[in-house]
Design a protein around this nucleic acid. Sequence first.
RNA 1: GGCUGCGUGGCAGAGUGGUUAUGCAGCGGACUGCAACUCCGUAAACGCCGGUUCGAUUCCGACCGCAGCCUCCA
Length: 462
Amino acid sequence: MLQIHNSLSKQKEVFTPIELGKVKLYVCGMTVYDLCHVGHARVMVVFDVVTRYLRASGYDVTYIRNITDIDDKIIARANENGESIQSLTERFIDEMNQDADALGVIRPTLEPKATESMAEIIKMIETLINKGFAYASDNGDVYYDVSEFDGYGKLSGRNIDELRAGERVAVNEAKNDPLDFVLWKAAKPEEPAWDSPWGAGRPGWHIECSAMSATCLGEHFDIHGGGQDLQFPHHENEIAQSEGAHGCQSVNYWMHNGFVRIDDEKMSKSLGNFFTVREVLKKYSPEVVRYFILTSHYRSPLNYSDESLEQAKSALTRYYTALRDPEPQSDVDWHDDKEFGGRFADAMDDDFNTALALSVMADVRQALNKVSESNDTVQAEYLAGLLVSFGTVLGLFQQSADSFLLGSNDESEVTKIESLIEQRNTARADKDWTKADQVRDELTAMGIVLEDVTGKTTWRKT
RNA sequence: GGCUGCGUGGCAGAGUGGUUAUGCAGCGGACUGCAACUCCGUAAACGCCGGUUCGAUUCCGACCGCAGCCUCCA
């Protein structure tokens, strides 16, 4: 029985879908003005695994991840670059998709864009005004009147008084209350703008998610996810907008993933301490990055360091080494495995405890190595198939062992490696250990590790 | 200042009121010409101080330390 930690109640709750057998999931995606960093990768991978596991549990999942393609930062960056907003956002949408694909992230069912949802956004703002939750000010902005919404603060665990006490933003004269937030921004000269009943302008950040989630999933859906930093104010404001406009609960389960940190500090653009997915993938293969992300529970902080990535790489190398010989049985379904499959399900059912699920896989690997040693081919092929089956949930073991262990090499390099191995084996046959070790040292210097197993020598990259 | 969350062995990271997490690294052994791989064995932990309890790393309270949100941020 799946339990999910709900940010609304701050507890694990048994998951019950609104509609039997179906899950409607919305995740806040990227603002596209720059490359994805590891923090973005974490959101993508975490909710990819959530989606995969829900599907593996028999649910028909509709997964929506939006794209914010109009906001202040985008306008600023486009101006800096001297390019159009459209060319900037198209470029970074493409870059984002490249990163997501590289990381093995399954594409969402739909990826709605703010700029393509203007009619719905404007309509929703009109509804909010009509219902008394919003007001247009003289300067052409439209604001949400926070005092009108009773539940304001229920997600982030604050109340309006506390927020006022902590207020440290310059007061905006156009607002009735400093806590009110903008739904529609009047256009300044030279800024991109859409026509609206309040004049030319563009939407505030929060309203797009309320409009798009309702359009794609309906007014009431199952799960809403995103990074922890969106809990306040973004998600709090979404609740105020959606529930104000629709008059019903909008989301049953809120899920927030923890931050990626560097030296115990949040990785973020403003701190400048981020690594892009692109640069990490130059050093580590995508599954190593996925494995690293999944070693920690999704709500815990994840500390990024070379050492952590190296550990993930070593661990994954051991899995692929175990998978090298047996031909994985192709029709294994982990659900049918009483022992390991049951433990895996228990771990994943417990709020997607991937760290615990990985420890089950480690036990499978050990069992696999044992049966391989005793030449129990049938059992080895079964356990290899079981690992691959678990891998479909976590997005691991999606390549052949050889492609992971050998990397991509041009033919001449492989020929050279193989000829050196042959030279060494000839020397070994002659018991010329000095020569044999000399050749092996040469290969080591090339980043090649040799493994002599049962009369044959295999190699892999370090 | 307000509000949240966290503090586990060398490192990473789950979990639990009394019994092995797991991975990486280490140590001993088997295998090997030597290694590597693999297997077997092994050691090592629960921030500090009180309380509840027969017993607490696990529950409660204080303290210390760290992080996050309160402003754009995944």
